[in-house]
Simulated scan of single mutants.
Amino acid sequence: METSGKTRWQEGLSDELNHWRIWLSGGSEAFAGEGFDDYGWRTRPDSDLRNQPHLTRNLEPFAPEGATVRILDVGAGPLTCVGKEWPGRTVEITPVDPLADEYRTLLGELELTPLVATEEAEVEKLSEVFPADHFDLAYCQNALDHVYDPVLGARQMLEVVKPGHAAVLMLNVNEGERENYYGLHQWNFCREGDALVVWNHDGRVNLNEELSEVADVRFEPESTETLMVVALVKKVPAGM
C-alpha cells in the first residue's frame, strides 16, 4: 500500500511536529475538556499500566509476578503513552518514532526531560532495528493511520513480538476521512463484521485475510463505534 503515500507522509511530518509543539507547550491544559490528563499520564513515573487493561490483558499470560515485560510503543511521539509501573513486575518500554530526533530537540527547547526517551524508527522498518521475536507486546496508539504503509507496519510489529504475543492497535474509526486526509492522516480503519479493514481512495485491504498466515485478529472489549482496540496475536509456528 506504499504507493499511496511515502511522499505525502514525508510532507505531513512537519504538521505532526507542530501538533506536538503546541501540545507540549500547553501541558495539562492543552486539551482541556477531554476528560483525561494525557500530559500528566505521560509524565508521571507512577502511571499504572493496569489502567490500560487492553495491554495488561495481553501480557498477563506471559508475565507472572517478578517478570520483566518488554513493550514496544510504536509511533510514540515525544512522550510514550504506556504506563510506567505494574506492581510485582518490571516494565521496560521502548518508544519509537520516525521524528525522534526532532522531538529530542523540541523537548530540549521546552526544557522537558522524558521518563523514557523515544528512539528513531519507522514502523515499516522495525526489523532493521530490533531482533525478531523480541518484545512481549507491541503497541500503536492512534498512529497506524499516519504511516506510509500500514499493512507492512502491522507485519513488522508482528515480526518483532514473540510468538503467541500481540501487537495491540488503538485506532480511531475512519480517521483519514474525518481529518480530510490532512497531514499524516492518510488511512482509514474500520470494522466489517469480525474483519479489520484498512482503506483510502487508492484501495482497501482486509487485514484478517492479509495477515492470516501470521496472526489472528481479535477486537478487544474497549472497542466502540468510533474507537477500535485490536489485538493482532502472532501465531506460534508448528512444533514450537
Rank of each mutant, 00 (worst) to 15 (best):
A32I: 01
A32K: 14
A32T: 14
A32W: 02
G33W: 10
E34M: 09
E34S: 15
E34A: 07
E34Q: 08
E34D: 15
G35L: 04
D37P: 08
Y39E: 05
Y39C: 00
Y39A: 06
G40A: 10
G40F: 06
T43M: 14
T43H: 03
R44D: 15
P45K: 13
D46M: 05
S47V: 04
D48Y: 01
L49Q: 07
N51G: 01
Q52I: 10
P53R: 15
H54D: 06
L55I: 13
L55F: 12
L55D: 01
L55K: 07
T56A: 04
R57P: 01
R57V: 04
N58Q: 15
N58D: 08
N58L: 10
L59V: 05
F62E: 03
P64N: 02
E65I: 05
G66I: 06
G66N: 03
G66P: 06
A67S: 15
T68N: 03
V69A: 11
V69N: 11
V69K: 08
R70E: 15
D73G: 06
D73Y: 09
D73H: 09
D73C: 03
V74T: 04
G75H: 14
G75N: 08
L79C: 03
T80F: 10
C81E: 13
K84Q: 13
E85A: 08
E85T: 15
E85G: 02
E85Q: 15
W86K: 11
P87Q: 05
P87R: 09
P87L: 07
G88L: 05
G88K: 14
T90D: 04
T94C: 14
P95F: 12
P95Y: 14
P95Q: 11
V96R: 13
V96D: 07
L99D: 10
L99G: 06
L99I: 03
D101T: 12
E102I: 04
Y103H: 07
R104M: 01
T105P: 00
T105A: 09
T105G: 08
L106D: 04
L106R: 11
L107N: 10
G108S: 13
G108E: 13
G108Y: 06
E109R: 14
L112I: 15
L112D: 00
T113P: 00
T113G: 00
L115H: 11
V116R: 02
V116D: 08
A117W: 02
A117H: 10
A117S: 11
A117I: 03
